[in-house]
Amino acid sequence: MKTKLLLLTILLCSFKISTQEIKMSAQEIAKFKETVESQSKSIKTIKTDFVQIKHMDFLTKDIESSGKLNFKVPNTLSWQYTKPYQYSIIFKNNKVYINDQGKKSTVDAKSKIFEKINKLIVGSVSGNMFDDKEFDISYFKTKQHYIAKLIPKTAAIKKMIKQIDLYFPLKENTVSEVKLIESSGDYTKITFKNKILNAKIDDAVFTN
């Protein structure tokens, strides 16, 4: 019995260690940023599936949705939900095109706040958002990931989002997971799967 308990404790402890976040050193940070930035410079397109989880403390279950994402430099982005319903949003030429289950609309996205949101989304996907003017950033690593934690400096963004966590798998230099944490602690977690860099993307993908 005692051995079993001991084994379990060791197992639990080792699990804890593997997910434990260790602060990165200044040297590690510099190297990490350089790698991500140089990688993101080589990105022309991103094609990926995603799964989105909305967690709210008061709910019994998280709300899950999923879809496809296509990105083309510098800032053309199509975010398409296919489950549980069809909804797509395309950011292109300072405009936002929405297709809500067949109902189409266009929004002018020239406002400052929208520009920031756009930059944030594009940055989250490509990983290139180490903007010290916009965010207070701290860097951590676990056995699986590098994690960049961004705290917005703009009051308007801050009211909506308390913190953004970007997860980079150790062997990749692009984001695999984004966690948007609200001031209440509720969060939205987006996980990217089957990511392909620099594949040819048909322009039709960015047409509403």
Binding site: Q52, K54, M56, F58, I63, W79, Y81, Y87, I89, D100, M160, L180, E182, D186, T188
Partner: peptide, 12 residues
């Protein structure tokens, strides 16, 4: 009752 309205993206 607790009720929440979010955008399709999930922002409250």
């Amino acid at each position: 009752h607790r009720m929440v309205l979010t955008t399709d993206f999930g922002n409250k």
